[in-house]
Simulated assay, not measured.
Amino acid sequence: MEDLNSRYGLNPAHSEVVEACQQIEPCAALDMGCSTGRNALFLSQRGFDVTAVDANPNAIGRLQSMVDQEGIDTIRAQVYDIQHASLAADYGFIACTVTLMFIDPSRVGAVVSDMQQHTLPGGYNLIVCAMDTDAYPCPMNFPFTLKPGELRDLYAGWELLKYNEDPGTMHNGARLQFATMLARKPE
Rank of each mutant, 00 (worst) to 15 (best):
L43T: 01
K147I: 00
V98N: 11
T119F: 04
S65E: 11
R76L: 12
S113W: 00
Q45S: 14
F93K: 02
T145H: 06
E159L: 14
V17M: 02
L10C: 05
V108P: 04
M140S: 15
L151H: 09
E159T: 15
Q177N: 12
E70K: 13
A52M: 03
A20C: 10
S35Q: 11
A88V: 01
G9L: 08
L126P: 06
P57F: 04
G123C: 04
A28I: 05
D3S: 14
C96T: 08
T145R: 14
C138P: 11
S44G: 14
N11P: 13
D73E: 09
F178H: 11
N39P: 09
S15Y: 08
S106H: 11
P186L: 06
G71M: 02
S6K: 15
T99C: 15
R38C: 06
D68K: 12
H84W: 06
R38L: 01
A183D: 00
V98W: 01
I72Q: 04
M101D: 03
S6C: 04
V50D: 00
S44T: 02
L43C: 07
A110S: 12
A29R: 04
D134Y: 01
I75F: 05
R7K: 15
M170Q: 09
M32P: 12
R76P: 06
I72T: 10
M101F: 08
K162S: 14
D49L: 08
C129T: 15
R38D: 03
Q83C: 10
D3W: 01
G122P: 02
Y155M: 15
A85F: 10
L100Y: 13
M1D: 04
L100P: 10
G157L: 02
E16K: 07
A130Q: 13
R175D: 11
C21M: 11
T74Q: 12
A179G: 12
V18T: 13
V79F: 05
D104T: 10
M115I: 12
N172L: 07
L30K: 07
V17W: 05
L151Q: 05
H118M: 02
L4P: 09
R152W: 12
S106Q: 13
M1F: 05
L30F: 10
F93R: 03
V98H: 04
A130S: 14
R152D: 07
N172M: 04
M131E: 08
D90Q: 09
K147A: 13
A20M: 04
N39Q: 02
M101K: 04
K185T: 12
P167W: 00
L182I: 15
I103V: 15
I103G: 03
R76E: 14
P148H: 06
F48S: 09
L120Q: 14
T74C: 14
G92L: 08
P105F: 10
L160Q: 09
P121S: 11
L160H: 12
M181K: 04
F142E: 00
M131F: 11
C34S: 15
P139R: 07
N141V: 00
C21I: 03
N58T: 13
L161W: 13
I82M: 14
L160Y: 01
C96K: 02
F178T: 07
G37H: 07
A55W: 00
H84M: 03
P57R: 05
F102L: 10
Q64M: 06
V53T: 14
E187S: 06
L63E: 10
G149M: 09
V112G: 00
